[in-house]
Design a binder for these strands. Structure first.
Lengths: 146, 146
DNA sequence: GTACGGCCTCAAGTAATCTTGAGGTCAACA
DNA sequence: TGTTGACCTCAAGATTACTTGAGGCCGTAC
């Protein structure tokens, strides 16, 4: 297909540039995570600013954060026009907080696991991975979430 | 149920201590991620060292790492007896590498997102989130994975 | 003795995240 | 003029990670 006099991208091009499968792009659209316009042949056309959204979706997927979370974080960023600097900034900050939270969780686990490697994790009482609150369950209501 | 003369734990106790649902524990066992013995009434009994395995499963789940990865990392740690210090250490180290990898991915994304917040991500050419290799796709084989 | 709680199995259902398949349009190329 | 490739829709299938439900066993408490 030769290039339209249109700077918007066809779904195949978007797929090639973002690495997301064509089927995945259609699926994200169904979820309302991204949006597209249609050309005179009813084919999807993506404005360039949509690549940014798609990149975010790929990222969320890659680090195992549910798409629903992304949807919430970027709920206020419009899909039908290029978001303003401010709109994008606000949502990006919220999303960055999510990432930080996730990172800190992993950091904590790394630290705990390092402790476990050191101690061999042979002592239940000493292992923070197992025993986050440093308590041993005396009755039914023992330590719960890690 | 009063306490057996058995230091192994019933499935309900394990659930209470680890925060994993009873049904999830049975499921993990089916997957071969954990194991249990049976008592004279055919009820599952968990040796205490199994709590460690279960904690790891909960963690993997929580940070969005597929259980299959955990299975691979801990493939060499025996389920039928308390693992030796060395066995546990080796697997823990491997798993820690996974965590580090995941953390670094997130760190990189955080940094990129920070850049995007700064620049407003209004310039495609400058945005590393969108354009990791600093190239714009000239033809079909554009930048792929983020 | 019967009700209740904790356990059992096995099958089916759910949710998230997609992919695959069937059937069709349209434009370009040999 | 055919055939190829990119796109379309809609429905069904796949995978991961579980939960729920039906039907049943056993021991303790009222």
């Amino acid at each position: 297909m030769t290039r339209q006099p249109d700077d918007r991208l066809a779904i195949g091009e978007v797929s090639a540039r973002t690495g997301a499968a064509v089927s995945a792009l259609r699926f994200y659209e169904e979820l309302g995570l991204i949006a597209s316009e249609r050309d005179e042949r009813n084919q999807r056309r993506y404005p360039r600013h949509m690549l940014r959204r798609i990149a975010l979706v790929s990222v969320a997927k890659r680090i195992g954060i549910p798409l629903q979370d992304l949807r919430e974080a970027f709920a206020d960023v419009p899909l039908d026009r290029p978001p303003s600097h401010q709109e994008w900034q606000r949502a990006s900050r919220a999303w960055k907080l999510r990432l930080e939270e996730r990172r800190r969780t992993i950091e904590r686990l790394e630290a705990e696991l390092t402790g476990c490697i050191g101690c061999g994790c042979l002592s239940m009482k000493a292992c923070t991975l197992l025993n986050p609150g440093d308590t041993l369950a005396e009755d039914g209501a023992g330590p719960r979430r890690l």
